[in-house]
Amino acid sequence: MTTDSPLLESRSLTLRHGTRQVLTAFSCAIHRGELLGISGPNGCGKTTLLKALVGIHRPVGGSIVRHRLARKPGYVPQHAPIDRNFPLTASEFLAINCHSRIPWIGGIPRKLRHGICGKLDCLGISHLAARPLGTLSGGELQRVRIAASLLDDPVLLLLDEPSNHLDPAAAASLKQLMIHLHQEHLLTLIVVSHDESFLDGLSTRRLTLDAPLLAVA
C-alpha cells in the first residue's frame, strides 16, 4: 500500500439497519487531506455507513479497506443525550477515552495528564477541564467529545451529525474548529450531516446519499 493509497475505501458495500437494507453496492474512497461531507435525507444510511467505516457495524456485503494510518480513526458518534447528573468532569471524560492500561480510579492519572491537557489546550477548552459534563453547554460538550476522539492522534476523524442540538453560533464555531483541524493539524475528516448548510463551505468534497429503496430483508 503506497502513501497515495486511499486512507479508507469501501468496495461494493451493502449495509443493513435492522431488517432494512440502507446501502447497496456502495463504493467510495477517502484520500488523505480530504474533508468529505456526507449528507442525505433521514434514514438513507449516513450513520450506518459511518459506523461501518469506523468498524462497529458489520456490512452484509462488500468490504472496507483501511490504510495502516487509518486503523484507529477518531470517531465522534451522534450526540447521545447524556445523564446530566453523571458525576464526571471533562478531563475525566478524556481519561476514560484513553487507550491505556494504567489503572484509573477517577481524576487524571499522572502519566496521562500531559496528553489530556495537551488536547484540551489544542482545542482551546482547558478552562473546562474541571467542569462536570452536566454543566457544559451543547457546543462545549461537543468540543470535549472531539478532544477525546483526538487522544490517539488519529490521521482520520469521523463525525456523525456534529451540529445536532447546537444553536447557530455554536454550530458556526464548531465549523471553524473543524476547518482549523483540517488545515492546521492536517486531519482528514468525514462529516455526516443532514444539515446541508453546515457542510457548505466546510467540505472539500460532498457525497449525497439517496433515500433507500424500502427493501425488507
Partner: peptide, 23 residues
C-alpha cells in the same frame, strides 16, 4: 474487576456507542 475495568465500564455506562467505537 474495578481496577481493570473501571475505565471501560464508565465509558460504556455513559455512552455505549462511543464505547463500542473504542473496542
Amino acid at each position: 474487576f474495578f481496577l481493570t475495568q473501571l475505565r471501560p465500564l464508565t465509558l460504556a455506562t455513559l455512552d455505549p456507542e462511543l464505547a463500542r467505537s473504542r473496542g
